Simulated assay, not measured.
Amino acid sequence: MMLLRFGVVGGVNTLIDFAIFFSLVYFMGLGAVAANAISYLVAVVNSYFMNFIWTFRSGRLSDVNLSSFAAFFVCSTLGLLTGSGIIYWLSPTLGVELVKLLSVGVVFFVNFFLSRHVLGGKEVGHA
């Protein structure tokens, strides 16, 4: 169930990420790597709260603290670096759209395992 919940949260945040990414690239003319950094970071903040409260059931919104957010942010930065590296190296040959999609798939698993560790996720009951 935890991986499924993480996937749902990831889907919501992927939509946020893609909407911001493609808006920045196609409407604002920003480079793909810079746009990826901005869109990914916005999605990370939302992801933290959704995962903290629902996916890993670590607590209530009132239990959110700076140290767990900082640890989650550091782990997410590893995901950002992974995704940006994929975009940087592969987008010139495969195109921005396909490479962005590919990077999301890879980063999903990197982030799941790191986030589960940081947020102390344990399987509990049903959703």
Rank of each mutant, 00 (worst) to 15 (best):
F27T: 14
V33P: 02
I86M: 08
D63Q: 13
F73K: 01
V9R: 07
L61N: 06
A37D: 01
R57M: 10
M50C: 01
N65E: 12
A71T: 03
K122L: 06
G120T: 02
G31S: 14
F72P: 08
F109P: 05
A19L: 14
F49L: 15
T82N: 01
L15S: 12
G11F: 06
S39H: 05
E123F: 02
L15P: 00
I20P: 01
F18I: 08
G10H: 04
V74G: 01
N111P: 00
R5D: 05
L61M: 12
S23M: 13
N13Y: 11
V25E: 06
C75E: 13
R60V: 07
L90G: 06
I53G: 13
L24G: 07
G11D: 10
I53R: 14
S91I: 11
W89Q: 11
N46S: 10
V25F: 10
V33Y: 13
G7A: 04
L61S: 09
F6R: 03
K100A: 11
P92H: 12
L80P: 05
V45L: 12
N13H: 15
G31C: 01
F109H: 08
G11I: 04
Y48F: 14
E123C: 02
N51M: 10
L114C: 11
R57L: 08
S58D: 12
V104F: 02
V42P: 01
I87C: 06
A43V: 03
T77Q: 06
L66G: 13
M50V: 02
L3F: 15
D17W: 02
G105L: 07
T77W: 00
L98V: 05
I16M: 12
F112I: 09
R60K: 14
L102T: 12
L66Q: 13
T55G: 09
F113M: 10
L81I: 11
D17I: 07
A70N: 11
D63Y: 07
E123A: 13
T77Y: 00
V74Q: 00
P92L: 14
Y48S: 05
F109L: 09
V99N: 08
F21D: 09
G95T: 01
R116N: 11
V8L: 12
S103I: 07
V110L: 10
I53F: 10
L3M: 13
L4K: 11
N46W: 00
V99T: 15
Y26I: 13
A70Y: 12
F22S: 09
V45G: 09
F22V: 09
G83I: 10
L30R: 01
I38E: 12
G85I: 03
R60I: 02
V8P: 05
W54T: 10
N46L: 05
T82R: 04
G10Q: 03
G59N: 11
S39P: 07
S67C: 04
M28S: 15
F72D: 03
L90C: 06
V25H: 09
L30Q: 13
S103T: 08
Y88M: 10
V99K: 07
V33Q: 08
L98E: 00
L98W: 05
L81N: 06
Y48P: 02
V107P: 07
V107L: 11
N13K: 09
N13Q: 15
W54E: 02
F112A: 00
V33A: 03
I20H: 04
I20A: 02
A34N: 04
G105M: 07
S76K: 05
F22P: 06
S68M: 03
S62D: 13
G85P: 04
S47D: 12
L24S: 00
